[in-house]
């Protein structure tokens, strides 16, 4: 704790949660959005932020608000945000994805670059086998996972760096 406090330059904010060496091909995965089952691959060719979160987590509320605040810049740089509630909401009851967005970031229901949905068991297994409450994957146009991290509000600079490219 003291180390973190005395080392502002510590790369803790770029917390890498990837279990594989980066970059790696994004696994296939299905999710449900507005009653339709969609594959992640549908968004191949776009810069994608696949954000898996649970609606009971405090980090996720702050993250949603931060993404909403910065969405103009994210959208301008071509980022599609797949905001998916974790499969079974990470084993806990809570708001549905629609209720969560409506409650905390209502303007994002109209955002063109946001896709809201619920992760399938298969997607959960492929991307979030450890059942993190808040984890995101930055996938480039070639379908390669470039970043795996948590807490988008705290790691916004990482997301901005990704969309601006090398």
């Amino acid at each position: 704790m003291l180390l973190c406090m005395t080392s502002p330059g510590l790369a803790a904010w770029d917390l890498n949660l990837s279990e594989k060496a980066l970059p790696y091909p994004a696994p296939e995965g299905l999710f449900v959005s507005q009653g339709k089952v969609l594959p992640i691959e549908k968004y191949r060719g776009h810069k994608v932020m696949l954000w898996l979160f649970s609606t009971w987590c405090h980090t996720c509320v702050v993250a949603a608000k931060s993404l909403e605040k910065n969405n103009a810049g994210l959208q301008k740089n071509g980022l599609t945000i797949l905001a998916l509630r974790n499969y079974k909401n990470g084993g806990n009851s809570g708001l549905s994805i629609e209720q969560f967005i409506e409650k905390f970031v209502p303007s994002m229901t109209q955002a063109e670059n946001w896709v809201l949905g619920e992760a399938s068991a298969q997607l959960d297994n492929a991307y979030n086998a450890r059942h993190y409450a808040d984890v995101y994957f930055l996938i480039d146009e070639q379908g390669m996972v470039q970043v795996v991290s948590t807490s988008p509000a705290a790691t916004l600079s990482t997301i901005k760096k990704f969309i601006k490219g090398p």
């Binding site: 406090m5 502002p8 803790a12 904010w13 948590t150 705290a154």
Partner: peptide, 11 residues
Amino acid sequence: SSYTGGVISFE
């Protein structure tokens, strides 16, 4: 740190 995913720093 409940808003930062457990990370403690000046930020």
